[in-house]
Design a protein around this nucleic acid. Structure first.
Lengths: 347, 347
DNA sequence: TTGAAAGCGTTACCAC
DNA sequence: GTGGTAACGCTTTCAA
């Protein structure tokens, strides 16, 4: 049962080397020999030992993936995209769940990466600190990031600032002025993504001349987080915003759930926009800026493979533009309508 | 930079063999030598090549995990539990996303498993068909399942039938009779889990003598699925159920969202119970039967390691009882209250 | 307690 | 085209 290439060779009546060549491509082998070897391999159910192959070739046929969370939409989707792309190419995927601040994360960087179990690494939304970057470099394997900040490695991501700006502009065009950006962890270190999106929000507000109407509400970046933040923010009907931009759909959806709970009508009394096009967006009729994390994962695999094939290839940043998906969570603000109605009466 | 054990040995002034022994446990090494070797290893940042270790020892220090979905709460949580447990033991995790019916799944079973890249495999909610079971066996490595049906492999799971029965009894005790079980994919092959839970539901209904009040509504097992199914089911206020049991929290939560949309009050007009204790359960005040998938993942690792250590160990099924978590999504049915009120008036 | 040498299962270089 | 043989980097007898 423990059939090695030697067994295949014997069965096909050739030498180990010929068998190897016949099976894994390599040099010249006559067509006849090749098919004979193939059949022999098939018959005894031969599968090469990956450890032996790795040792001999220096290639592990395996890609590492590090991400801080597995249970959030974006990350799970990226992971599936990566997995699918790798599977197609016959590559394995070794997963590391590196939640910030955990002991596990420390071990991943200090112990696991050094083992060089993989030919390259994909880092998803990692935001490594200096020490971690150092370990990543010391690893001596190509790294590609999805949602990565730096320019030292190749990366794939949407233009976050642009997406937030577009979303804000949409709200402004509808007549909203008092707009709240919800997102940016209350205590934790902020994600780069949230910073960029907040920046885009502020830029748009400033350009529209209503920087002082801009509100920023901190919120854990999850559906319950957005819910909790919105419950607080919508409590006082006096000075509540007429529109909310969630740093991502999860937060926006949490806000919609909160609004419904509080009896605040969406979109007539409150407009909500998100960024993502989360799997629940449709269900909540959420207008959002769409990104497709699966494709980003697939693109990252592509890039990584290029870097593995040519280690000297310079890093390259891919920046995608998110497209707006109009649904029905936005409308002109109630005050706007009232003003318009007043104008009409006046005429 | 490419520091091998030979470099460590040279630096510590010992032979390769001694260095190996000092580092990876093995036989006798004097304390002094050991610490000298350790220091040398540390200084040059030595990490053993996993391929070489695997080849020499026959152990890959790697565990495979196969699951049909990554983006569902239960699966993501189990995965995190597994990852954490493996990390603590210095083991790597190779992930296979085997969505039913995909080409990727076929390749995983036909090509990837045969490579024996891991010492053992954890199958989460896999429900392999005959061919797949055959491949699993042919792999010749221990397999442990989380939510597994068979008794050929060790497994960890909650008692699904019991959980559904308890949930149904809770509803019955409150006075509900017209109860709907929501779950069981409309088109797909049904998950064993859903079958067992439906069975538990029916048993409880029969025992209570109201089998003919039992309703079964098919639904995709996701939040949007539960939402869609509930929108249909709650449309006609005439013969709608007074209570819903979701096959899992996701479905139950979808139903709550639908009820709110339709203006059906939960719990006064509709009671809802789930099974899981999903991360959103709190936010929706969902009464549910709690399971902790993370712990199941950790337990699976434990079991698998036992099987790897002793391949002859007989399989062992662990069945957990889910505990009820009372929140406020359930109450006596409106008709019940009316009846009670009528009784009071009559007196 | 230590060192030399023989594997582990492949690939890859070199003769033939 | 094909067959020896030396790596690949580590563990593990077996002697010393």
């Amino acid at each position: 049962m423990a059939s090695g290439i030697e067994d295949v060779a014997r069965r096909a009546g050739v030498s180990k080397s010929t068998a190897s060549r016949a099976l894994s491509g390599g040099g010249y082998v006559s067509e006849e020999t090749r098919s004979r070897v193939r059949r022999a391999a098939y018959e005894i159910g031969y599968a090469p030992s990956t450890s032996a192959v790795s040792l001999a070739t220096g290639r592990t046929q395996n890609v590492g993936v590090v991400m801080p969370y597995l249970n959030r939409w974006f990350f799970a989707e990226v992971l599936e995209g990566i997995q699918t792309a790798l599977l197609e190419r016959g590559l394995d995927l070794t997963l590391y769940d590196a939640e910030p601040g955990t002991d596990g994360r420390r071990r991943i960087f200090d112990d696991f990466l050094a083992r060089k179990r993989f030919d390259g690494l994909i880092a998803v939304g990692l935001e490594p600190d200096d020490h971690e970057v150092e370990r990543l470099v010391a690893m001596g394997r190509p790294v590609v990031s999805v949602v990565g900040a730096g320019s030292e490695t190749s990366s794939v991501a949407i233009d976050d600032e642009h997406a937030a700006r577009r979303a804000t502009e949409h709200l402004l065009e509808l007549g909203h002025r008092r707009i709240a950006f919800v997102g940016g962890e209350p205590d934790h270190h902020w994600a780069q993504v949230d910073r960029s999106r907040l920046r885009g929000f502020h830029t748009a507000m400033e350009d529209a001349g209503c920087a002082d109407e801009a509100i920023h509400i901190r919120s854990e970046v999850t559906i319950p987080g957005g819910y909790a933040a919105a419950v607080d923010a919508l409590g006082d009907s006096r000075d509540r915003p007429t529109a909310i931009l969630g740093t991502c759909d999860e937060v926006a959806i949490g806000a919609i759930i909160a609004a419904r709970r509080l009896g605040v009508q969406v979109p007539s009394q409150l407009s909500v926009v998100g960024i993502d096009d989360h799997e629940f967006a449709e269900m909540f009729s959420l207008t959002t800026l769409r990104q497709v994390p699966r494709e980003q994962g697939a693109a990252a695999v592509e890039l990584l493979l290029d870097h593995i094939a040519d280690p000297d290839r310079p890093p390259e940043q891919t920046s995608l533009k998110a497209r707006m998906v109009m649904r029905s969570s936005t409308a002109p603000p109630p005050t706007h309508m009232t003003a318009a109605a007043a104008d009409m009466r006046r005429e």
